[in-house]
Design a protein around this nucleic acid. Structure first.
Length: 669
DNA sequence: TGTCATGTAAACAAGC
DNA sequence: AGCTTGTTTACATGAC
């Protein structure tokens, strides 16, 4: 069952490799996607297969494009750096949305990239005589793109998407075709002051870039960007930071461009793949006799000249760094889009093949990042100030619903917390409270948490409770709880002293955790009633909160976190084009996740199609085998009604409601 | 500003 | 003695 033996197994995160390679290598080898085999299984070409093929080709095109873009990140000297090429997508995909640096995540694919993708795809399709269907597909994408742009405008009008930090983003998203993007590059390159370039780069921070600490995209995230503009507009980019940036870049941007030396496209040209250049040189930044550095296009007759040019014009300075960041952004967006498209493909395939029984590999949160605050740990294994390439991350499969479960990538080392101990404080209570239903979040992202060194956005109490309730007997020994933590979360595989202490502390502190003397020793159970009591003002029905949430639909009263998530989910419109209007979709998500894990007692099918049939609400609500129940545990299943009331008080479609909550989820293991 | 929830650290005790 | 388990206190932080 899902509760494994107590033996502590440090997983080697096999899916990491898969997910990683899936993006950079041929097909989606990782993630256990069944989609690929579906089409292949059929001997003849059905419409489904055709669709599949088209999607695959689109994805392949995207991959190619990504690779090319990624290889363009290589600094001149890092061409030979041999790192896992697959780390590019991973780290990119795992970036938190807000940063311009690789941490950036959750960003929509901008029109230029979309167009580039489309063009590339079209070329491929035409090449293979699949034009008509392809065109339809293209049109769909274009539609999505337009919708997205529209919605971005809306969001901005409503103040949801800060205008200032996204000014450049707008130019990217709304007005730019590939040549426009190139224009941006030129602007970035041509700006007289590095300050301007940095602003540009900063502006490319497509996310909401909220400065609120509650943002799902933590403010501190941007703070550890290797280079950042200062509030006053000045940009001092310490050489050390730049060095860090490049060090980091080279650490993961291995020249997987070896197979294609057209990582960058020059002005006026189509995106790389649209005109496959000959290998005009051995340098990914050099082709067609000109420098492929974004926005450069300097003519270089030969490689020697090019190298000279490269060293002279694109040395390690603020401008180049900023350009690099922009490029990262481009790659990242493509990455995200690829993930989304892959997921959509998965859904389509699943739907068309009518194979609901196939478990959907919902294991990849797009929005990753850590929750509250990953403190110094980030600086332990990775270059200071640079993001973790979360290990498992970039499998192309991403949960459909991702907006709300934004785990912010956080503060990292730059934040000013006095806590500098190993495990950063999980301060994102909002995540726990209204943003992230632990069960659904875990269900969807269990693989992610299992493999990525990302702090789960839940409180210890929530996690402990979940662990206990997930166990067959609704009871666990302390050690089993420990094991559950380490099993489910890569993050808890270290700094054990800290979090274990916290676990014990929570167990003792909260009345909802009841210690029961068992034959085997002491076990811990959950007093669900106490647990519910413990947090009265939550979405469990608090009219205020519900009202706030609803009023939040007007985008006026959402806190930063919601706004970020909202914007995010709105921006991810691309991912669900014809569905709902962005605001309502986002709102639903928000509301949806509003009640934390309280609705745990509602037994429903989970979002990923799984359910916990073994648990009746009462089972879930009441500890089993509790010998000493400190408080009166009523047997009427009260929590259920309570929650039901809450749930129904929200304007959720019935099929959305079931996404909730704290049900122990089998898919966790 | 105060309260509350939470996270972290630490001291301490009991049991093995 | 050292470790685990459990309790408790103190303090910091963020949300409300």
């Amino acid at each position: 069952m899902m509760v494994e033996s107590a033996s502590e197994t440090i997983r080697t995160t096999p899916s990491n490799q898969n997910g990683v390679s899936s993006l950079s290598s041929q097909s989606d080898g990782g993630g256990g996607r069944e989609g690929g085999s579906n089409g292949d299984a059929n001997g003849e070409i059905s419409p489904v297969d055709l669709l599949h093929l088209q999607q695959q080709q689109a994805l392949q095109a995207a991959r190619q494009f990504l690779l090319q873009q990624a290889s363009g990140l290589n600094s001149p000297g890092s061409n030979e750096v041999k790192q896992s090429p697959v780390q590019v997508p991973v780290s990119m995909a795992m970036m938190s949305p807000q940063m311009i640096t690789p941490q950036q995540m959750q960003q929509i694919l901008s029109p230029p990239q979309l167009q580039a993708l489309l063009q590339q795809q079209q070329a491929l399709m035409l090449q293979q005589g699949l034009g008509s269907k392809q065109l339809a597909f293209q049109q769909q994408l274009i539609q999505m793109q337009q919708l997205q742009q529209q919605h971005i405008l809306n969001l901005q009008r409503q103040g949801l998407v800060p205008l200032q930090p996204t000014a450049a983003m707008q130019s990217l998203q709304q007005a730019m075709c590939p040549s426009d993007l190139q224009q941006l590059w030129k602007e970035v390159s041509g700006v007289p002051s590095t300050e301007e370039a940095l602003k540009q780069a900063e502006g490319l921070d497509l996310s909401t870039n909220s400065s609120n600490s509650t943002s799902a995209f933590p403010k501190a995230a941007s703070a550890h960007i290797p280079l950042h503009s200062l509030p006053n507009g000045q940009s001092h980019t310490p050489k050390r930071d730049r060095a860090r940036l490049f060090e980091w870049i080279s650490s993961f941007t291995k020249a997987d461009s070896g197979d294609d030396h057209v990582p960058l496209y020059s002005k006026g040209s189509q995106p790389p793949s649209s005109h496959h250049e000959e290998h005009a040189g051995s340098h990914p930044l050099y082709g067609h006799g000109e420098c492929k550095w974004p926005g450069c296009e300097a003519l270089c007759e030969d490689m020697g000249q090019f190298i000279k040019h490269l060293n002279n014009e694109h040395a390690l300075d603020d401008r180049s760094t900023a350009q690099c960041r922009v490029q990262m952004q481009v790659v990242q967006q493509l990455e995200i889009q690829l993930a989304k498209e892959s997921e959509r493909l998965q859904a389509m395939m699943t739907h068309l093949h009518m194979r609901p029984s196939e478990p959907k590999p919902f294991n990849q949160p797009l929005n990753l990042a850590s929750s509250g605050s990953l403190l110094k740990r980030d600086s332990e294994a990775y270059p200071e100030g640079l993001p973790h390439p979360p290990t498992s991350a970039a499998t192309p499969i991403t949960p459909l619903r991702q907006g709300p479960s934004v785990i912010s990538s956080s503060s990292l080392h730059t934040h000013s917390h006095s806590h500098t101990h190993g495990v950063g404080p999980i301060r994102r209570r909002n995540s726990d409270k209204y943003c992230t239903p632990i069960a659904s979040e875990l269900a969807q992202n269990c693989e992610f948490y299992k493999n990525a060194d990302v702090r789960p956005p839940f409180t210890y109490a929530s996690l402990i409770r979940h662990a206990i309730l997930e166990s067959p007997d609704r009871q666990l020994t302390l050690n089993e709880i420990y094991n559950w933590f380490t099993r489910k979360f890569a993050y808890f595989r270290r700094n054990t002293a800290t979090w274990k202490n916290a676990v014990r502390h929570n167990l003792s502190l909260h009345k909802c955790f009841v210690r029961v003397e068992n034959v085997k020793g002491a076990v811990w159970t959950v007093d669900e009633v106490e647990y519910q009591k413990r947090r009265p003002p939550k979405m469990t029905g608090s009219p205020t909160l519900v009202k706030n949430m609803i009023s939040g639909l007007g985008f006026g009263s959402l806190n930063a976190s919601y706004q970020a998530a909202l914007a995010e989910s709105s921006l991810s419109l691309l991912n669900s084009p014809p569905l709902v209007t962005p605001p309502s979709a986002a709102s639903l998500n928000m509301l949806h996740v509003g009640h934390d894990d309280v609705s745990s007692t509602v037994e429903q099918v989970n979002s990923n199609g799984s359910c916990s049939p073994t648990l009746s609400p009462q089972q879930y609500s009441h500890p089993v085998h509790v010998k000493e129940e400190p408080t009166e545990v009523e047997e009427d299943g009260r929590p259920v009604s309570l929650l039901a009331g809450v749930t129904h008080s929200l304007p959720l479609p019935s099929d959305e409601r079931d996404l909730e909550e704290d049900l122990p989820t089998e898919e966790l293991e």
